[in-house]
Design a protein around this nucleic acid. Sequence first.
RNA 1: GAUUUUGUAGCUCAAUUGGAAAGAGCAUUUGCCUACGAAGCAAAGGGUUGAAGGUUCGAGUCCUUCCAAAAUCACCA
Length: 592
Amino acid sequence: MTLHHTLTTHIQKAVLELFNISIEKVEFQATRKEFEGDITMVVFPLVKALKGNPVEIGNQIGNYLVANLNEVSKFNVVGGFLNIVISDAFYVEFFNTIKNNETFGFVAPKEGEKAVMVEYSSPNTNKPLHLGHIRNNLLGYSVAEILKASGKKVYKTQIINDRGIHICKSMLAWQKFGNGQTPASTGLKGDKLVGNFYVEFDKQYKKEISELIAQGKTEDEAKKLAPSILEAQQMLLDWENGKPEVIELWKTMNQWVYDGFAQTYKNLGVDFDSYYYESNTYLLGKEVVQFGLEKGIFEKDPDGSVWIDLTADGLDRKIVLRSDGTAVYMTQDIGTAIQRVKDFPDVGGMVYTVGNEQDYHFKVLFLILKKLGFDWADSLYHLSYGMVELPSGKMKSREGTVVDADDLMAEMTTTAQTISEELGKLDGYSEEEKAVLFKTIGLGALKYYMLKVDPKKQMMFNPEESVDFAGNTGPFIQYTYARIQSILRKADFDTSISISGLELHEKEKELIKQVQLFPEVIQNAAENHSPALIANYTYDLVKEFNSFYQQVSILGEENHDKKVFRVQLSKSVGNTIKNAFQLLGIEVPERM
RNA sequence: GAUUUUGUAGCUCAAUUGGAAAGAGCAUUUGCCUACGAAGCAAAGGGUUGAAGGUUCGAGUCCUUCCAAAAUCACCA
């Protein structure tokens, strides 16, 4: 029974007895620091129903609570706010119940409950991953972990765009200029190598365009007539027709890319339970179009193309099948969604981690699936996120301002090393231990920086600022964790015993309150699909702890019970940090 | 032009989803290492929450109209 529950039921009882009216909801908030009290009930919502003045109602409820609840020791009313003072004994008791629960706040998935599939990453195979993908991956992974912690079964997946004109461009350039290069022969990561040929193709293509323009063609004509693009288109046709040597090369080069991506994912600390490939799914969805036509949800134009009219829903008319009978993006996505539920029958909802440039697409997709009558269509969520901007402006591949994912991670690690060595706290560490630590810190900085921002907002990534380890940053929080571990190493007594009857220091109470919030924060973050809530909560907790740490003595405390209690409290804060960071995919070091 | 999203301190972000006097970090200024770790703490200055109306006991949050930025508006993905 949480404090909220206890208070709610008693306030409901109080209102029933005092005013003979039954109420459902009781609103609480943390008492502001300026006022005495721990938890505040907002009286205003009751004023209308009870037809009294807020102060009087507050006083009456307050008196009732003090008389009937041991947990409530005092109260005061300011305006329409009933500030309730909770007894120290309650906090100590409560803390005793959670202090040895290492996964406090995590809920185990219930038997027979529907699972959620979280899609994220979903790259093209012609280019390496960049800063934008990093935001995508971190968000997707973190939301998946948060959903798990909130008691959902989760499948992480991605759809890899492995077919189409883009990969043909890389393949073509490799044939022409590659001289048989492989990742092994060049020492390059496979995705980098393939990406280089994509750039190579683009150079050649542009050269041809300007030549054609010089010969008097318009730009549009030149773009369509350039030999390179014609060859690439031919190659795509050959691929669709299954021409063996094209398929062979396609498989080889895609495999290079997958090997490269695997390395990046490993470094980034993200993983997947299943993979979908567009080469397998791009034909899906066509039979659903037929079904939709029969149902009258779709309509066929004279030229044979199939559409859905969503104007009644405030959207447009949208094509779902081309006049030549081939699938569009939407067709595939409809088909893939259905396929996923077939593959994983316990899936009852999906989360799509895709940039906000596709907001409209997903609105339409979800609406179509709903109209097609799938019961899970109401549980689809587009985890839309804003673009990552650089101080120099947007990333543009043409201008070479793209921040490469691997490079960025390496830079963060190097910076972590530089800062750590300056601080010189790493005596007695082996080189391997140091390397692991620098990576933990560097990536912690990167991940926290990206996840603390509300996903839907466009964000500014300042490479210099992100490696600042002070203030609201990952390393600051990691540092606090490491310091707590240090305390625990030095506390050479049994910390599992129960302590009671303590008078609490203000800081101790604040810490217990903050820890107590964790389960609620997880649920909230899961509902809102927002790692930022977890990140900011953790920062608040750490701030609170640091203040406590600096102002009171923990191991130096004379009173043995108090000392044990403070160590337990520190341990509990450490666990909470660790668990919260686990949800963000950030590791936490024992020392740093 | 239409639709969607965003606009909070000089900068980067919060604000328990409608609650009390809008909070952090960076930057600027001032104290605190012989203490359980100073990657820290304590404190100062810095705000008409883009603007104007409205709803409400109560608005950064909801509604309307402007202003600004971004995204989308293909038989591309």
